[in-house]
Design a binder for these strands. Structure first.
Lengths: 346, 346
DNA sequence: GTGAAAGCGCTAACAC
DNA sequence: GTGTTAGCGCTTTCAC
């Protein structure tokens, strides 16, 4: 571990001052091209590694963009991250990814950690548990741009990127109706979270648009995990609700329902149609493959990163928060497409 | 964005010096308990936020641990990360996660980014493409502890955490043999990567231990992705190799094979048994659920983080790299368990 | 086009 | 137990 080269070493080597070296390395046009070249060559020769920490301390900019997601272990979040990286890296930012594991305290800690690390901005999909936004306000007060995606709130005056959940759910429901399914259930979660509220509304309005009465009894609220999906479907079967299709606001919920249906030898898609939300890898591996509302997660990431860049660019002139709403896409797989012949059999 | 409180503000407020404040905040025992309490109260009152960047610059320690994985979007890696976080957070470190997307240039960039960010250590599972370890040597020369997991190499004198791939493969193969499968194929990848070499060896020696001849024709080398698994299985069927079971060195490869078998109406597990490697969520969702060699990924993360902590603790006394080998576990699901009655039918 | 000088906020060796 | 002092390596204002 030999001593590291600093700009002073380069300066000494070239008989100029550290300020010149600093400017040259940053390609400051006030430095002559010749000097810049010289300095840059010397930097390579001396194996100079810039100390970002020193630069960050002095300039107040770390060139690090923080990201907080519930978990990176889901296609949706990991491709949002990928989308953020694409844009951020090009603009010279590195990303620092944190996981809240959908836990509030954890999220508070991570916000603090990013704040202490001096990140230049934070992009967040907040934890399911989060009801209080104090920790995010701290960021804002600190002047650190905050951008939310997926889960949004009106309690914060910040830019947001969401998909049109209403539309996605509407399309899913309409698709099932067009396949001839008559009694369509809906798995939802906490009505306070806007994405679930919107998905419920999309489902409801699609039914109404097609003259199918909305039935409160067909709405199942849960945490939407695998076990919840199983429980809800068991309830449907137990009560003899004569349901023949499902729009689940989550992939896992749909998966749970599917397991139960198969255990009861109910044929999918002929006797029962399913559409889920969020495009997890496994959804195409199930038997039959699950239809889903795809959220174009990479584009969500792109947009969020762009909003961040805009916000730091508009530095002084007060930035006006924007809300970007992306269109979802219905991916139709076998779980919701009835085959003609088998339809007749029923 | 009001001016931030610094230790000097606290010092002024309490009529002490900044160093006292610094010590008090760090719970330095040389400061009287009374002063410490006073300082900590004042810090809260003045809404003091420590500037980690300044501390990092001064102390040379950032309290950030870097992680580079191919992608966080896989159960294996995300739970390794979780395991690292558990240990690292407790020890006061924050983690900075980077994804190489299995691309060499990307990996080089990320190493540089972490170096510039001044991380105190880096834990890596390097990209499949990586053949050259110069970028990692840079880290080592810089005095930054490096710990490898999963993929290991002898070209670097660093600590490593791996699972006993040989054993995992041996167990998987033996299990299939015990179920009465007779001609077992193996899907492998680049023989230069030690995990694949070891898995191949485990397979081979398990066969030999049970008096089953090893047949070169039953080894299929590919990238082990879904398409590769499909292609290999199609080849098996096309050539009429009479294979009745498979040990795949990847989950995706096993999945691809399963798809093809189902398309050909070959019954799993009765006519064909499958065991995969790596425990992805989706493996329990397939039909039938896939047996797998579980790698205890969280424990890999724990161990890697512990190695890191040991290494920085041993600061001057030259640290001797350690290699930790964890035992894998065979998770038996339906894809490899023959049922008595159906056995007779064949 | 380059230099001099100040300092970002913190820590740590050395005093006493 | 607390203060003094000197930077960590860099950027940036103000000179000329």
């Amino acid at each position: 571990m030999k001593k590291k080269t600093t700009i002073h070493d380069i300066a000494e080597n070239l008989h100029v001052t550290a300020s010149t070296v600093s400017r040259a390395l940053n390609n400051n046009p006030r430095i002559s091209l010749k000097t810049r070249k010289l300095v840059q060559q010397a930097a390579i020769k001396l194996n100079y590694q810039p100390n970002n920490i020193a630069a960050a301390l002095r300039s107040g900019k770390s060139n690090i963009l923080g990201i907080i997601v519930p978990t990176a272990d889901r296609s949706f979040f990991s491709s949002v991250i990928y989308g953020i990286e694409e844009i951020a890296n090009t603009a010279g930012f590195n990303v620092m990814i944190c996981q809240s594991h959908d836990n509030y305290e954890n999220e508070v800690d991570k916000v603090q950690a990013l704040l202490n690390a001096g990140v230049d901005g934070v992009i967040v999909s907040y934890a399911k548990e989060t009801k209080d936004f104090k920790h995010f306000k701290k960021l804002i007060n600190n002047g650190t741009p905050l951008i939310l995606f997926d889960r949004s709130t009106n309690e914060l005056e910040v830019s947001q990127v969401v998909i049109d959940d209403y539309l996605g759910s509407y399309m899913a429901t309409e698709h099932l109706i067009s396949q001839g399914y008559l009694r369509i259930a809906h798995f939802t979660s906490n009505a306070k979270i806007s994405i679930y509220k919107d998905r419920l509304r999309g489902y409801q309005e699609a039914l109404e648009a097609h003259g199918i009465p909305f039935d409160e009894e067909l709405i199942f609220e849960s945490n939407l995990q695998l076990e919840d999906g199983r429980a809800s479907m068991l309830e449907i079967l137990g009560k003899g609700l004569k349901v023949d299709a499902l729009v689940s606001a989550s992939a896992m919920g749909a998966m749970g329902a599917m397991q139960v249906l198969k255990e009861h030898k109910i044929k999918i898609p002929d006797q029962f149609g399913i559409v889920g939300f969020a495009n997890e890898t496994f959804m195409s591996f199930t038997d039959p493959p699950l239809s889903t509302v795809e959220q174009h997660s990479k584009r969500i990431g792109n947009s969020a990163a762009e909003l961040f860049l805009q916000e730091i660019a508009s530095s002084q002139s007060k930035f006006i928060p924007q809300k970007i709403v992306l269109k979802p896409e219905l991916i139709i797989r076998e779980s919701s497409v009835r085959t003609g012949e088998e339809l007749k059999k029923i």
